[in-house]
């Protein structure tokens, strides 16, 4: 567990550095899903960085594609591509696009960035797994602002209809979108009863606790006949005091001084 916490710290430092160097990007929503992605790639998912297209691999879809710095950091640490790529995020000619692109970057499973599309893609992968009698699992992170898109609910009904128990979605419940709190903008509450009413098994965890996340992921593997939604309660901008719970840091790069302060805080956390 200490190891995982250290990896989360390193990931957070990468995120800050990447976005600072890129001069643009989305720190808030990247920092809120660090533990989720680290837990999946280090403890839960079956995958092989040497063979990113291994047919038996578990699939991971970042439906809230703007948080891709977190995924790039983890993929690079796992060896999918050289770490030097991180420092050229969003620069012309670099394989690391501002939002995930299937064909540009090893380890990326779907092109996202236009919100609301990832859960349907995950459904397709889960259906293919069933058709091909494969036992891989599909994971998808969706944002709590993103669930304003009707397409998420269209997908949610398909997941239930086709009993996609090989699908586990994670809702990054940080409470904020761009223009304000999710309650003030679209008010998707109550979350748990809603997903339950749509036929999903719903687990709720502290999305920054590896302990709770790991338990929930193994719980989800045991659920049969329906998909699982893990509502991960998180903090947007987690780990950097001046970014936490502040919509201003949804899509803004830190200055050099701010990045230094952020990294200092992360190292001493």
């Amino acid at each position: 567990m200490d190891d995982l916490k250290q990896i989360a710290r390193e990931t957070r430092k990468d995120i800050i550095q990447m976005i600072e160097l890129a001069g643009s990007g989305h720190p808030g929503g990247s920092l809120s899903c660090v533990e989720i992605i680290v837990a999946l790639y280090y403890k839960i998912m079956r995958h092989n960085p040497k063979n990113p297209k291994w047919p038996e691999r578990d699939r991971f879809i970042l439906s809230k594609g703007h948080a891709v710095p977190t995924l790039y950091s983890v993929l690079s640490r796992k060896g999918y591509f050289p770490r030097e790529w991180l420092w050229k995020l969003r620069k012309a000619g670099n394989p690391l696009q501002g939002h995930p692109h299937l064909l540009s970057t090893p380890g990326i499973e779907a092109s996202t960035g236009s919100l609301g599309q990832g859960l349907s893609i995950a459904n397709g992968m889960a259906l293919a797994g069933k058709l091909d009698n494969k036992d891989y699992r599909v994971y998808a992170i969706i944002g709590d602002g993103e669930i304003g898109e009707g397409a998420i609910w269209e997908a949610s009904m398909s997941s239930k209809r086709y009993k996609l128990d090989n699908l586990c979605a994670i809702l990054d419940h940080n409470g904020l979108q761009i223009d304000g709190s999710i309650q003030a903008i679209k008010d998707p509450y109550p979350l748990k009863p809603k997903w339950e009413a749509f036929g999903w098994e719903v687990l709720e965890v502290n999305g920054h606790s590896f302990n709770e996340l790991l338990i929930a992921f193994s719980e989800a593997k045991k659920i049969k006949g329906k998909p699982t939604m893990i509502i991960a309660n998180t903090v947007k901008g987690k780990g950097v005091s001046f970014m936490e719970n502040d919509i201003l840091w949804h899509g803004k790069a830190p200055s050099h001084e701010q990045a230094e302060q952020a990294i200092n805080e992360i190292e001493h956390s």
Partner: peptide, 8 residues
């Protein structure tokens, strides 16, 4: 739009 890439 620049840095956000093709999605945007």
């Amino acid at each position: 739009v620049g840095e956000d890439g093709y999605s945007h």
